[in-house]
Design a protein around this nucleic acid. Structure first.
Lengths: 336, 336
DNA sequence: CTGTTAGCGCTTTCAG
DNA sequence: CTGAAAGCGCTAACAG
């Protein structure tokens, strides 16, 4: 059962190794009959080329890295699905790196990736990332990088996000239009551009509509740990009793729902909530959750397509470009 | 910016390649000062070992394959999270293969994997898998495989599932205890053992409790396409008007909820639903969804641990073993 | 159309 | 303690 390799095939067929190699690649310089003989034997012996040996020689891996904070998350899992969708059509494989919002892990992964491990990288940076030296290094190493959702503006490469500012502005405006006067905001770390944009949209909407921005009503969470976040949110809502709430990510909105249930605060009568969310069953929640839905799957596809285009063109440097995709805002009221 | 490799380090330090290699591996046969010099330069030049070259030589990749039907799914994404959790501690990387329930893709992936691409495989087989020759091949190639959730019993290796039969039996019993007389069952393809077990649990519970098993009330779905499934479920419910429903996977239960909303059927008054589900926010649904929750994350961890144990022990053949983990059944009533 | 040869970057005998 | 050399499996000049 020793592994069958190209050498073995060559020996059995009385051909040279290179001929076999070429035949397998369907090279035009090999005779038809020879090709057939080679392919036939390869199939018979269930020959599988060694991906790594080929890659080592060719200096490419046919593999891309997807670096994300988490996978058990509606948004990221949809993005990964989209990425994989196009990767499969291109004959590429997907290596997953979960940073778990740990900056050091992210740095480690990116460093590791540099040595020809992958041909390209799709990344949504971790919450704690501040210094982005590691990403600059990667960019310099002629490994194409595409940022999605959580991006670093100052790395000159392709970036793809949703219209975070605009969507947040509109969403907040919706709350105002519904009569909310005291609108809270739950957000992820300020170190993330995406977070700053969302909060800015929220603030500007307030100001433009004659409401005062009260920074006490804006909370940033640096952790992912729900057991820590939940009591904070519950407390926050209990003390401040906002009548509107804009949430920067789904998880925070769901914790708000739980908090309200426990505090006997009626949504949406006492508190209207709108949140960025990829939750498909938002309409099945009672009360249903008003959502700002990012085109996660399509974003994954788009990001991957940009990357593969660069890979196919042999261009390692992607243009410093920022694409914004449109989110969909859906207001859902109580069905009663 | 040409890539810095071990050769370059050797040249700059006036050492041989092998010495550098050994120093980097902290081999005991290298002098302390030499080690320090090497490590210092490596750090300075940001040397990153070429993973593939090392793997080629060592005949191991420090990478495992995770083969699953989908990623944008609560259950699977949690499992992947668990797998990655232990992979990270072991210094392994995770290559994701999404079969999208396509048997041919699964075969292709498994074949591809055979040639040293990965050191081990964690797999939940695709719905359409019937012939498992490809899995036998893999098993023979001395690359360890662990099945989880959707397993093939006749491949002699480690398998890990939840107590599907028992949980289904209990869940169905719960419906009966609540007074349901006409209990429907929505299931995935019969080609999957897991599906047969779940349906069997349902049927046995009916029989043991004096209810007649009506095969017209059992539906198997061969597709994943919700646009196809939804109208079928809606029709099915409309025509049969069951008073209880046991669903084999979350997605089918959610489509049931939607169907009932559109048919003005009141859950749980007219129809009590219980489903296998990894949906964390099940209690936030209105009416809340009664669930059979598999320990997805822990299953991922457990499966990975079994695999790594084999890898560490250098045993390529895993014992033909079947571990069952316990699911949690939670009945949720309307809050009114 | 086919074969010879050199090497991708690394590890690992085998010699000293 | 260090070095020379072979080779993992494959591809790609360079010859014929």
């Amino acid at each position: 059962m020793s592994n069958v390799n190209i050498k073995r095939l060559a020996a059995e067929l009385n051909l040279s190794i290179s001929t076999v190699s070429r035949a397998l690649q369907n090279s035009s310089e090999i005779g038809q009959k020879t090709k057939e003989r080679v392919v036939a034997l390869a199939k018979k012996l269930n020959y599988q080329p060694n991906h790594y040996a080929a890659g080592l020689r060719r200096k490419q891996s046919n593999t891309i890295a997807v670096v994300v904070p988490e996978v058990a998350d509606n948004f990221f899992s949809l993005v990964i699905d989209g990425i994989d969708m196009v990767a499969q059509t291109k004959g590429y494989h997907v290596l997953i790196f979960l940073t778990r919002d740990d900056y050091n892990k992210e740095v480690g992964f990116i460093r590791h990736i540099q040595s020809g491990r992958v041909d390209g990288v799709l990344i949504s940076v971790s919450s704690e990332s501040k210094d982005n030296e590691h990403l600059h290094e990667l960019n310099k190493k002629s490994i194409p990088v595409v940022f999605f959702d959580r991006v670093f503006e100052d790395i000159p490469t392709a970036k793809i996000t949703t219209d975070d500012y605009k969507a947040s502005y509109k969403a907040t405006k919706q709350l105002i239009d519904k009569g909310c006067k005291k609108i809270a905001c739950l957000a992820i770390p300020e170190t993330l551009l995406i977070s700053r944009k969302r909060v800015q949209g929220y603030m500007d909407a307030l100001e433009d509509n004659g409401l005062i921005v009260d920074t006490d009503l804006v909370m940033h969470f640096d952790t992912n740990d729900e057991t820590i976040i939940y009591p904070i949110i519950r407390d926050f809502i209990d003390k401040n009793r906002p009548d509107g709430l804009f949430s920067s990510i789904e998880k925070l909105a769901l914790l708000t729902y739980q908090s309200c249930a426990s505090l006997k605060i009626n949504i949406p009568n006492d508190l209207k909530v709108i949140s960025f969310s990829s939750l498909k069953i938002a309409p099945l929640l009672q009360p249903p959750l008003s959502t700002i839905t990012q085109p996660a799957f399509d974003m994954g596809k788009a990001a991957a397509e940009i990357l593969f285009k660069a890979l196919e063109d042999g261009k390692s440097d992607l243009k410093d470009d920022h694409i914004e995709m449109e989110s969909k805002i859906v207001i859902r009221e109580s069905s009663k």
